[in-house]
């Protein structure tokens, strides 16, 4: 219940109508959207029961490792009702052709693989919010100071997922495990996204806001 209540509001992409359609415009729109979502995701993290009890340093380490997984999982969940399209925002839905034009086809394909996996399972909102919190707590940062405290957070979230599945999906005792088994694909997809946006940053043709840049740099 607390995780459902902590879910951030929807964000609009608002592509700049003054810019002509181009790969730069698409990437500028996505980077701006990501930056605004990141601000919301940081305040979301603070509402995860137990997260704010971690040291500030460990909170930072978890977010620096998992920020892109959180963004990707949110896009994947939003895209569940869409056919082969990614719903980056209600006003920004991207098909393969548009992704290709923006140089994002590989990433688009990878995120859709994740969407299909969740669609097959009919991922529910309750499972999505819990899995997202698990991805954050389980981000495998190499800089964690209080490993036991982070383990405690992982255990509490894992327990919440098991409880939910026990009550709502007693017909499939392996459902929680199946959900956890999607996390490697999420990690892989997120790493792809970070690499791609790092190379866009190197090119220097797309304006990026400071928080997005700061977190991209944390992953280099």
């Amino acid at each position: 219940t607390l995780l459902l209540g902590a879910e951030p509001e929807k964000v609009c992409a608002m592509p700049d109508p003054a810019l002509p359609d181009s790969d730069i415009k698409a990437l500028t729109t996505l980077c701006d959207l990501a930056d605004r979502e990141l601000v919301l995701n940081i305040s979301w993290a603070k509402h995860i029961p137990g997260f704010s009890s971690l040291s500030l340093s460990d909170q930072m380490s978890l977010l620096q490792s998992a920020w892109m997984e959180i963004l990707v999982l949110r896009v994947a969940f939003r895209s569940l009702p869409c056919d082969d399209r990614l719903l980056f925002a209600d006003d920004y839905i991207m098909d393969a052709e548009q992704a290709k034009c923006a140089g994002l086809l590989e990433l688009h394909t990878a995120i859709l693989q994740l969407v299909r996996r969740y669609r097959c399972m009919s991922l529910e909102r309750e499972e999505f919010v819990t899995l997202k919190a698990i991805a954050l707590a389980n981000s495998d940062s190499m800089h964690i100071e209080d490993v036991e405290a982070v383990q405690g957070l992982q255990d509490a979230l894992h327990e919440a997922l098991l409880d939910y599945e026990c009550v709502h999906h007693s017909e499939d005792p392996r459902r929680a495990g199946k959900l956890i088994m999607t996390l490697p694909l999420l990690r892989q997809t997120s790493a792809k996204a970070v690499r791609h946006f790092c190379s866009i940053k190197q090119d220097g043709r797309v304006p990026m806001h400071k928080l997005f840049l700061e977190l991209l740099e944390a992953n280099i």
């Binding site: 305040s43 977190l215 740099e217």
Partner: peptide, 15 residues
């Protein structure tokens, strides 16, 4: 970590 000023500030803000 000193470089991550915005993340640090956002985490320290209440809300």
């Amino acid at each position: 970590k000193e470089k991550h000023k915005i993340l640090h500030r956002l985490l320290q803000n209440s809300s």
